[in-house]
Structure formats: C-alpha cells, structure tokens
C-alpha cells in the first residue's frame, strides 16, 4: 500500500498519543511496512489540545508529517473546528458522537461511534481509544486487524490485555454494523 496519512486529534488524556503509537507500531512492526509517528501537545498533560500523526507506507517515509490525511479521528469539538476544513476529498472522518457535533453542512456525514460512553459502560473510560481502533479496523481496509490486535497487546499495561481486546472487539462489532455512511 502507498503512503497513508492518519491524524488523531482531541484533548490530552484521551489516549491519543498511545493510539497513534499503536497504529504506527501495527504497520511497521506487526505488518511489513514502514511508519512514522509524531505528536504535538500543549504543556498540560491532561485537557490541552493533543494531536498524533501517523504516516504509513510500504517504502521508507521521507516527509514525516500529515498533509492530506486519508483518516481523521476527531475526539473534541475544538479539534473538529481546527482540522475538518480544507480536507481532501475522500478523507475518512471518524468522530466520537458524544464529544463532537459535526457541522450540518459536513458532507459526507462523518462516521461516528460513542466510544467514550461505551468505554464508561464497560467500566473503564480509558479504553475509549481502543474501542475507536476496533471501529476503525472495521470501517476501513487501511489497517491489518491482526496487526492492530498484536500492537494493542504489546502496548497496554500488563494484565489488561483481555479487557483491551474486549474493548477492541466491541468497537469492531459496532463498526461492522455502522460502516455505511448515512
């Protein structure tokens, strides 16, 4: 697969950096490609704006940043306002439906999943990002689901693997049911 650019944006504390790391690691370590992962955030560890960028490719990556994302995952209204304009045609936009109210004129309507609410219902809000990854695996063919699973297991704290896999499958099943843009 050629160059794929992914941007994940929201607030610090939502697991954005870890999500970016998992995606890059899946592509470069657990799949056979290359990946570059970069991040930017404010001085706060929680609550400030936070963005992770991942570029994957089947050849070494020169320019390491996102210019025209194929995938944009948005987890805050602020990030929506910042990034959703000037997107190239065909960008897959995914939002957390409880955190982001998309503009009515947004066409096509973004794919959405209430990942944070689903995570709270599972008992741990921190797995919202893993639910989101499961959703992404279901709605897009840009990522190897198996590589993502392995990358998650290698990245989450010891003893939480099963719980995170449950979160991933929850998001994946939700994605299979809601993969068509309405």
């Amino acid at each position: 697969m050629g160059r794929v650019e992914i941007r994940i944006a929201g607030f610090g504390g939502q697991g954005i950096v870890l999500t970016g790391h998992i995606v890059g690691q899946a592509a470069s370590i657990y799949d056979s490609g290359f990946a570059t992962f970069t991040q930017s955030y404010g001085p706060e560890s929680r609550g400030g704006s936070c963005t992770a960028e991942v570029v994957t490719s089947d050849e070494p990556i020169d320019y390491p940043y996102v210019q025209n994302p194929q995938v944009l995952i948005i987890l805050s209204q602020e990030a929506y306002a910042k990034y959703v304009n000037s997107l190239p045609k065909g960008t897959l936009v995914v939002i957390d439906s409880d955190l982001v109210k998309p503009s009515p004129s947004h066409n096509p309507v973004p794919l959405s999943i209430p990942a944070t609410r689903m995570a709270r219902e599972m008992g741990r809000a921190v797995v919202a990002n893993i639910i989101m990854l499961g959703f992404l695996a279901a709605v897009s063919d840009l990522f190897s689901t198996e590589a993502l699973r392995k990358s998650i297991l290698a990245s989450v704290p010891e003893g939480t693997g099963d719980f995170n896999m449950k979160a991933f499958e929850l998001g994946y099943d939700y994605g299979l049911k809601h993969r068509v843009r309405s």
Partner: peptide
C-alpha cells in the same frame, strides 16, 4: 527535536 521525538521502527 523532530528526529528526537519521532517514533519509527
């Protein structure tokens, strides 16, 4: 900073 903070294989 860019090389220091970017993650790659």
């Amino acid at each position: 900073e860019a090389v220091g903070h970017m993650s790659e294989k």
